[in-house]
Design a protein around this nucleic acid. Structure first.
Length: 198
DNA sequence: TCATTAAAGTTAT
DNA sequence: ATAACTTTAATGA
């Protein structure tokens, strides 16, 4: 968890509920709140002119959403924040959030860690743009596996749909499926009941 | 090598 | 039911 939930509530945060596919904020919105997920999952994305989704990140329980925007003044969000599942999200005004950080500077470290994680991920994914399909997928899977502290072969159940993997890597679903099957033949992944183990 | 299109099968709600 | 996801196959850049 990035910031203790009781602490946020004591500072005036309220819990807001979102349904699947609800937008928490939209591209170009100026974000005025600190958002932290209590339950559920959220994604950051963009949509191309042809309607294709570009996934920027999937954010799990306990993590904050686009918090870095609060350190930039009057900058529109470059991404949409969309509820992937039903969500309960703590929402604290920017002013209270900044005040909280001044009162408890050590919290800055936790915020920093969260932001750094996202930058690191984006760099890794961006850097894979020169690679072939199999490498792109492997890069994505490697990152997720390490993040979940898994090391043994096939010990990591990939928590993404093929569609999501495609939207992360910029590949189309069909190529993603075909490539994953090739990787299965090469013993890089194991597929059981459509679940992918890496 | 990979995107696109189409068509059909499967799963989840 | 119906929408979302998965799969296969053909075609073309």
């Amino acid at each position: 968890m990035v910031i203790d939930e009781f602490l946020l509530e004591a500072k005036g945060a309220s819990v807001v509920e979102y349904d699947i596919s609800d937008f928490i904020f939209l591209e170009d919105d100026i974000v005025r709140y600190y958002y932290q997920i209590v339950t559920g999952k959220v994604k950051l994305n963009n949509y191309t002119d042809t309607g294709k989704e570009i996934l920027q990140s999937i954010i799990d329980e306990g993590h904050s959403i686009g918090e870095y925007l609060l350190f930039l003044n009057d900058i529109g969000s470059p991404v949409n924040a969309v509820a992937v599942t039903r969500c309960k999200i703590l929402k604290l005004s920017k002013a209270s959030f900044l005040e909280l950080l001044r009162e408890q500077p050590n919290l800055g470290l936790d915020i920093n860690r969260n932001i750094s994680e996202h930058i690191h991920f984006r760099h890794i994914i961006n850097n894979s743009s020169t690679q072939c399909a199999a490498q792109k997928l492997k890069t994505l899977l490697d990152f997720l596996k390490i993040k979940h502290n898994k090391t043994e072969p096939y010990s990591f159940l990939v928590p993404l749909t093929r569609q999501e993997m495609a939207n992360f890597t910029g590949l189309c679903v069909e190529t993603t499926i075909k490539t994953l099957k090739k990787m299965e033949r090469e013993k890089l992944v194991r597929i059981v009941n459509r679940k992918i183990y890496y």
